[in-house]
Amino acid sequence: MSVHNLEIIGRVLRASTRGFCCGTNSANINQRHDFGAFVKVPITNDDHQWVIGLIYAVEIKDDLMISELVMAESVDPNVLRDQRANRMIPVEVSVLNIGYYDGDRFFHSLPPRPPMSLSEVSLCTSEEIATFTQRSEYLRLILQASEVPSDDLVAMALRFASLCYPGQEDRRAFMIHNGRQLARLLSNDLKRLSHILTLIRP
């Protein structure tokens, strides 16, 4: 896993082995921060091991200035534009850990240690996503995570991953393969299964 040409999305604010939060500012927010995106960050004191996670929440923080402006009767459009373009509003991105990379291969289980604060969090490349999603055990980690909107997260992550495949047929095959995996995992909750399947249906 290389550190070059990384699409940095932020730096770690807080972390645990279950997941972490990374911060950035509003000026940097773009589609890299989409819900369901695959991200990676090096594990504490180890440049070879990386945590793999999924973005499950993006939160735009407020401050005093914003509160005041929101309360104001009317806001001058110029002020509004200035606020949006030039002020740095803190943004918090929450990530669910779904696996890690040990320098050699991917594991679909929680990482041995969390990432260190201020580590750079970046997007996974499509090769990495394709390799990581070759197996489907990570789906279980998502489905079992109670703190996240796991149904939507699973669906979104699969949509993301399927985009790594160039052809229509391949994407469909990928979705079917994972859909079948979900059917096995959720055989005792058919309503949930059918909801997720509706979300990932091409």
Binding site: G179, R180, S187, L190, S194
Partner: peptide, 26 residues
């Protein structure tokens, strides 16, 4: 079926995608 409850609420398999997923699993 893996779960007998599926008999009460059978999935709609007119969509080939759904069919491919349900057949052989649930």
């Amino acid at each position: 079926s893996a779960n007998p409850a599926i008999q009460n609420d059978p999935p709609d398999i007119s969509d080939p995608f759904m069919r491919e997923i349900y057949y052989g699993t649930a």
